[in-house]
Write a protein that binds this DNA or RNA. Structure first.
Length: 920
RNA sequence: GCUCAGGUGGUGGAAUAGGUAGACACGCAGGACUUAAAAUCCUGUGGGCAGUAAUGUCCGUACGGGUUCGAUUCCCGUCCCGAGCACCA
């Protein structure tokens, strides 16, 4: 009987769907296991062969965990709000909801063909009111809370109001914007407007003026991680800096916890490192310098990590955007300063970056007093100091900071070396090592000693204090778009506070056109009745990461109308045990989600402080393009091996008409009209194509659709092949050249169960050799799956099947466990065979076979031998040996010895013919 | 520039704790079955040298050193590819 994959797969997929085989329900008698994929944005292009890689891996793991007796939650949904659908709507006039819906249907069809074990009853779509109701709800909660730094948690804003009216704000340690200190009496004397604006500085979701990445082409603001090299990630349009009043989330309040709680997460080092860089904690001190502009004097605060280099601070630098520029520009310098500011402002972020090597700056006309040397040092203004980090002002120590050094050289400012024996004539000495000199009381100390000593002295003199700084900024939360969650916020005239709109969900209104208005307002301004009781509603919508920040919680209880997730569901499913997705979300989604979770944790809505326990980043699948070589000026194409004899042009050819780099000549002629009369110069009767690894894209004709692979080889082959391709976490090109091997293996596996045309499995007892093959496989598959080393377990299956052929084995005792073992990888063929083996229920409800080590090692001897002392060890041998033989081998022919901790030998590999001296 | 992860046959990639490097698969070559093709099966396949052959022998895990009886694996230096961050004081 032939392995008819297309019938088998269709049948079982229908059965899984109708019987809801993979439906997950709370079951307190079984341990839970939550396996989550990063849900896709349903783009119009559909899935290509790279997308399912992670889904296949998570599906294998889910199925494995079910076999191990876990109650597995394995859901799927769609991140359905987003720019592309809106862009498409602008171009075609089609409603984004309609195109999104269509794309989702297409995605679903494609996903279904691969045979995933998702519980589709839990599907979520971020664009549906029943879903985004909870995104809006969380936003309102953030609006109604502030962050208490001394307790390190979010607290209700009413509590803050209470504190203010009792004690003012002097004692309050909160994550906030800039607020002056006030007493209780002052607070009580504030009018409504004043109070509102003070509270706004404390809210976790707040409205504030900020410098944003404005993308004129898209007509919207973008987050930092939506911008790459000054261009928008989606679309590649230029992005400029602009000051705007925007909704923001006080993510920076959680910086310390986001950093600290990462320790216990089972994530890759590189991903943790990325988050660490993004959070960017640096320990240093804040220091006050007396600055003088003519008659006026001020205290200027700076941040430094190198308080020890204070004696070498020979000038100060302000960021051009710093509010201090205005105060410290002298009359004589006003002209040049303004000119400099204007030129700096005109430059886009992109230009600034391109010119990052060029030194520019201007003298402000003011001077600061170095508090330790008491020297008068000039205050400069330069682009290389960033307004958004620290205080936007620095003390420059040219001898020990390369940027300050370049600046000092360029403007001939003094450079004072502070480390004994360092040479700063060519470059600065940035390393934190050596012995201090020219540094007053710090002389003779090592840098490591000097840093804390300097900070201590600074604190003692009352001119500064220890300070931890973070690079992490608050998330800008407003987008001037249509296709996103509306803010549940309205503005009452004469009232300074925006008001929460409580009867959620606040549904997205219908509009006729999806463009901004003529006056530059966001598209929602086009909606006629975008108001509440006559008061205008907020016209921006939320960004892409809003809907994806808590979706893993919604999956736990997707139909709940009264809560994001019920306490019962959350207590049971708790957190994601395994999260699989791309590394591109390292600094976006994975930070925001953790922040969102921690916020809800503070409020008691969720029981775990981290959402994703273990995270695996699957590698990207690149395209493997094929080329043909046209002889210039002709319609002749020359095969790869002969192309050097001609003058040729390299042309991309559709990879779907190439097989193992052999071009299908007829298909090529049919491919495009211009090739209809193509002629070929062949080698050995075949046309060999060239190839290259490139991004998978339509223009390179290297996109492979999983449907095509399923048609030709079946979903099981696709699944196993994607795993066989290489380590999960590694990026690799899609290369169909090996897929036949995997397909052949499945056919061989299938034929194990047949004698001639008949399904025949014998009930005889298994032989030790057969059991050895089986148990070797069980052991291997188990450890491989647990280590996510799926490529080697596919190999292990191949070896096992070859062994069984050699043993001529068709015994139930062996084949039945084999079917269970392979079911996570190739579920359809497993179900079919399981059914033929006489089982009524799905193989998904079977148990993973018990591993018996006894059968994997044929002979194990424990034999005491004296060998440079007395040692006990075990021998693992390929054939049986008598004790006498072993002794002689150990005495004379031991080649290889493995030492283990404690000095005992566990394993000796015996290679005849060689003698080795053993040293212990 | 900084940080992280890598570099193994013609190709994708294996190799628990340092112990017969190259599993498994692709490709290639040869063979069987067949009128033929497809499908299937079998054999060989890192390189050099010697031999009719079985086989023997030397060299081989980016490069140069080191530790070790023994290094793809550990340490130091160099080169090269990939990813992330990029004036973060």
């Amino acid at each position: 009987m032939e392995y008819n994959f297309s019938e088998i797969e269709k049948f079982w997929q229908a059965r899984w769907a109708s019987e809801k085989t993979f439906k997950a329900e709370i079951d307190t008698n079984r341990p839970k296991f939550y396996v989550l994929d990063m849900f896709p944005y349903p783009s119009g292009a559909g899935l290509h062969v790279g997308h399912p890689l992670g889904y296949i891996a998570s599906d294998i793991y889910s199925r494995y965990k079910r076999l191990k007796g876990f109650n597995v939650l394995h859901p799927m949904g769609y991140d359905a709000f987003g720019l592309p659908a809106e862009q498409y709507a602008i171009q075609t006039g089609q409603h984004p909801a309609a195109t999104t819906d269509k794309n989702i249907q297409r995605y679903r069809e494609q996903l279904d063909r691969i045979g995933f074990s998702f519980d589709w009853d839990r599907e979520v779509r971020t664009c549906e009111p029943e879903y985004y109701k909870w995104t809006q709800w969380a936003f309102l909660k953030m609006f109604e809370h502030w962050y208490d730094l001394s307790e390190q948690r979010a607290r209700p804003i009413e509590e803050l109001v209470n504190i203010f009216s009792k004690n003012g704000n002097a004692e309050v340690k909160a994550a906030s914007g800039e607020v002056e200190t006030f007493s209780a009496d002052e607070w009580l004397s504030f009018n409504e407007t004043k109070r509102a604006s003070v509270l706004m500085e404390y809210r976790i979701a707040y409205l504030g003026e900020t410098s944003v990445n404005w993308c004129a082409a898209l007509g919207t603001v973008l987050a930092n991680d939506e911008v790459k090299e000054g261009l928008s990630v989606r679309g590649g349009h230029p992005v400029e800096q602009k000051k705007m009043r925007q909704w923001q989330l006080r993510v920076s309040a959680y910086a310390e916890r986001l950093l600290g709680d990462m320790e216990e997460l089972d994530w890759t080092d590189s991903l943790k490192e990325m988050q660490r860089n993004w959070i960017g904690r640096s320990e240093g001190s804040e220091m006050t310098f007396r600055v003088v502009n003519g008659e006026r004097e001020y205290d200027l605060e700076i941040f430094t990590t190198r308080a020890d280099t204070i004696f070498g601070a020979t000038f100060m630098v302000l960021a051009p955007e710093s509010e201090w520029v205005e105060r410290l520009t002298s009359e004589e310098q006003r002209g040049v300063v303004e000119e400099y500011l204007a030129s700096a402002k005109k430059k886009t972020e992109r230009e600034r970056m391109a010119e990052s090597k060029r030194v520019s700056g201007v003298f402000s006309g003011s001077y600061a007093i170095n508090p330790f040397t008491l020297e008068k040092i000039p205050v400069w203004i330069a682009e290389y100091v960033l307004a958004g980090y620290g205080t936007g002002a620095i003390m420059a120590v040219p001898a020990h900071d390369s940027r300050d050094y370049a600046f000092a050289k360029h403007f001939s400012l003094p450079i004072i070396p502070l480390i004994e024996g360092c040479n700063v004539s060519e470059e600065s000495f940035d390393a934190k090592e050596g012995v201090m000199c020219n540094s007053g009381f710090l002389n003779g100390m090592s840098v490591k000693e000097a840093i804390p000593a300097a900070i201590e002295e600074v604190e003692r003199r009352g001119i500064g204090r220890r300070k931890v700084n973070y690079r992490l900024r608050d998330a800008i939360f407003s987008r001037q778009r249509y296709w996103g969650e509306p803010f549940p916020i309205y503005y009452k005239e004469g009232l300074a506070t925006p008001l929460p709109f409580d009867s959620l969900p606040l549904e997205l209104p219908e509009i006729d056109k999806f463009l901004p208005t003529e006056s530059g307002e966001p598209p929602l301004a086009r909606a006629e009745s975008w108001s509440y009781e006559g008061w205008p509603l907020e016209k921006s919508t939320m960004p892409g990461f809003a809907g994806s920040s808590a979706y893993y919680l919604r999956y736990m209880d997707p139909q709940n109308r009264d809560a994001l997730v019920s306490k019962e569901a959350n207590d049971y499913w708790r957190d994601v045990d395994l999260y699989i997705g791309g590394t591109e979300h390292a600094t976006g989604h994975l930070i925001y989600s953790r922040f969102w979770n921690k916020f809800l944790y503070d409020l008691g809505y969720v029981c775990e402080k981290e959402p994703f326990k273990k995270l695996i980043n699957q590698g990207m699948i690149q395209g493997r393009s094929n080329f043909v070589y046209r002889v210039k000026g002709t319609n002749k194409f020359v095969s790869l091996g002969l192309k050097d004899e001609y003058d040729t042009t390299e042309i991309h050819v559709d990879v779907n008409i190439v097989n193992n780099d052999r071009l299908d000549l007829d298909a090529f002629k049919r491919w495009m009209p211009e090739y209809e009369s193509a002629e070929f110069i062949l080698e050995d009767g075949e046309y060999i194509c060239g190839w290259a690894v490139e991004k998978m894209s339509k223009s390179m004709f290297n996109v492979v659709n999983p449907d095509t692979v399923c048609d030709k080889y079946g979903a099981d082959t696709l699944r196993m092949y994607e795993m066989f391709l290489g380590p999960l976490e590694q990026s690799k090109p899609w290369d169909t050249n090996g897929i036949d091997g995997v397909h052949r293996f499945l056919k061989r596996f299938w034929r194990l169960f047949f004698e001639k045309e008949n399904f025949r499995v014998s009930d005889e007892d298994a032989s030790p050799a057969e059991l050895k093959t089986l148990h070797k496989l069980i052991g291997k598959v188990q450890t491989d799956i647990e280590n996510f080393s799926f490529n080697t377990s596919v190999s292990a299956f191949m070896i096992a099947v070859n062994d069984l052929y050699e043993l001529n084995c068709n015994k139930r005792a062996i084949l039945e466990p084999m079917v269970i073992l392979i079911s996570p990888f190739a579920p359809h063929i497993a179900e079919e065979l399981w059914n033929k083996l006489g089982h009524k229920s799905s193989v998904a409800f079977a148990s993973f076979p018990e591993y018996n080590q006894k059968f994997t090692i044929e002979n194990t001897f424990e034999y005491p031998v004296s060998f440079n002392g007395k040692l006990r060890f075990k021998l693992e041998l390929e054939r049986s040996l008598t004790p006498a033989e072993i002794e002689s081998i150990v005495r004379e022919d031991v080649n290889t010895i493995k030492f283990l901790a404690g000095g005992s030998i566990k394993k000796i590999i015996v290679v005849p013919g060689k003698i080795i001296n053993v040293v212990c």
